[in-house]
């Protein structure tokens, strides 16, 4: 029997699941669109990855990360819940010990993580604007009628990237439309968008950070060769795109699951066959005081598993 460790990363756009073994080898991976339904997506993803997993692998630990990490931990039965910044850093440094900078661009957030000697020393995440993230590229690709998978190839064909304002997603879009109306070709516009995104990223999250090689570029957006080229051009070095760039957060979670379950000596993992279970949430407004907290209740079938959202702790409940 082989021991496997499950990592689940539920982000705004995608839900990624991986199982790794004791040697950090990726056994299986699943990449799904979250579509605003994290519970259902996780159930589907778990089922799918369970089908795919070789029969001799037994899950010995599970962890969740991403913006829906707490909710997901209740569904999966996680041994540890970790934020995605730490998870990404752990995955990258497991892969390449000497990595000094991580560029991660996901669906709605982008981050930079600075490591020295395998320890995170600084990080930043975009705060109030989603310009320069995957969702923005998605939108522009559909506006240009290019499948997002093809976006990078278009950019690579460009001869003279058009300069597009990248500070704000709305300004970028109108600037791009103006350039289209002036007759610039699509390839040059796409390449211009990639460069705008990189400029925005560097000015926003990258500002004031000491970017040293090796630089790892990960997250779903790293699939875009146009962006890889734009980063190389801007930074004057070659960024490394890891083989499993899209699921690094989940891999980091899986590594954490291994450590946590070893420490615990067992796992809380509920198994893959949970698609029959009816998970649901409901909420109510507490009338206890003027804060009027929105309290969320989480049910597994008819059993109340957890309650959160209250500031005073009056309603807080964790069955698991």
């Amino acid at each position: 029997m082989i021991k496997g460790y499950l990592g689940v990363d539920v982000g705004s756009v995608s839900t990624n699941l991986v199982v790794i073994d004791d040697q950090d080898q990726l056994l299986v991976e699943q990449y799904l669109r979250t579509n605003g339904k994290p519970i259902q997506t996780v159930q589907e993803g778990l089922h799918a990855i369970g089908q795919e997993l070789p029969a001799d692998v037994k899950i010995a630990g599970a962890a969740t990360t991403g913006s829906a990490r707490y909710l997901t931990s209740l569904i999966v039965g996680a041994d540890i819940v970790k934020n995605e910044i730490t998870a990404h850093a752990i995955a990258s440094s497991a892969l390449a010990e000497d990595v000094k900078t991580i560029i991660e661009i996901g669906g709605q957030d982008s981050k930079i993580i600075i490591l020295r000697d395998g320890v995170v020393t600084d990080f930043a995440m975009n705060t109030v604007c989603a310009a320069g993230t995957g969702s923005f590229l998605d939108q522009q690709a559909s506006r240009l009628l290019i499948p997002i998978e093809e976006f990078g190839n278009y950019a690579l064909k460009a001869k003279n990237p058009v300069r597009i304002a990248g500070r704000c997603a709305v300004f970028a879009e109108s600037d791009m439309v103006h350039k289209q109306q002036l007759g610039y070709n699509t390839e040059d516009i796409v390449a211009g968008l990639c460069e705008a995104l990189v400029r925005n990223y560097m000015n926003n999250v990258g500002k004031g950070k000491e970017i040293l090689a090796p630089v790892m570029f990960q997250g779903g957006v790293a699939a875009n060769q146009g962006l890889v080229r734009a980063f190389n051009k801007y930074l004057g070095l070659e960024v490394i795109v890891p083989q499993h760039y899209g699921v690094m957060g989940a891999i980091g979670a899986a590594i954490l699951a291994r450590d946590a379950s070893r420490k615990k000596g067992k796992t809380s993992f509920k198994g893959f066959n949970i698609q029959e279970i009816n998970f649901k949430t409901s909420s109510f407004e507490c009338k206890g005081c003027s804060n009027a907290c929105e309290v969320v209740q989480f049910y597994e079938n008819s059993e109340l598993l957890a309650r959160w959202g209250d500031r005073c702790g009056k309603w807080e409940l964790h069955v698991v």
Binding site: S67, N83, E84, I85, D109, T121, D122, F123, M125, T127
Partner: peptide, 12 residues
């Protein structure tokens, strides 16, 4: 979003 950043900062 704030929670995520703070958790990561505390880890650091």
């Amino acid at each position: 979003g704030v929670q995520t950043r703070l958790e990561a900062f505390v880890d650091l």
